[in-house]
Design a protein around this nucleic acid. Structure first.
Lengths: 107, 107
DNA sequence: TTGTATACCTAAAATTCTTATGCATAAATC
DNA sequence: GATTTATGCATAAGAATTTTAGGTATACAA
């Protein structure tokens, strides 16, 4: 399914909140955890990671994967953790508001 | 709150599924029903209505409001009803997938 | 050796939104 | 009476984020 524009950041932040990881693995985790529903294209992934790093929400460093490959690892910073909390709250509020319109106050 | 890009269409279709209405009233209904959370700017509203009409999901016609003002009324077409059903289903699936990533399988 | 998976990146195009602006009428307020 | 607010339509410029498509390189499996 196509990503809704604006939802990728929180997916990345949440995925990295478990443990630092590299881009390719983040995309795979999102795909797998969403039961193949949320497909993160690489053309969206890498620019998003750089945006988040530029905003100070992630810290990048080169390292090696389990299989010994070079990869750029990203870790949540303190502001990143704070932003994740906020973004998850925003998402919940958005879902609730959509529900009010789509299903009415009772649902 | 800013709209997530891609969620406006289903909001419009759902609002018009109650009864035909005009653009300004659709935006107001979305704002009110979402408890002032989803604010539809006019610069997003009118182009969206035209897009949906162009896709054959809405049918437009000029008429008069209760207060006697000229306004362009939009009604759901048969394909529009079908698309609303699909779009609501897509939204539910998206929310579920986001939940899987953000909160895990148990939640 | 050919394909598949891993791992990074970028550019062009598409989409959809916000912001800003314009026009016009009616109702409410000062 | 004049001004503001609300109603109602519309468009253009800019911003943001995505898809699509391409490139590079290594490792492993068929």
């Amino acid at each position: 399914m196509d990503l809704l524009k604006g939802t990728l950041d929180v997916l990345i932040l949440r995925t990295l909140s478990d443990s630092p990881s590299h881009g390719y693995a983040v995309a795979r985790a999102i795909r797998e955890q969403s039961a193949e529903t949320l497909i993160v294209e690489e053309g969206a992934l890498y620019p998003a990671l750089r945006r988040l790093e530029k905003r100070g929400l992630l810290k990048a460093s080169w390292g090696r994967t389990d299989t010994g490959r070079e990869a750029k690892f990203y870790a949540l910073t303190a502001p990143g953790k704070k932003q994740l909390k906020q973004a998850m709250s925003d998402w919940d509020r958005y879902v609730e508001a959509m529900g009010l319109v789509l299903r009415g106050p009772q649902a």
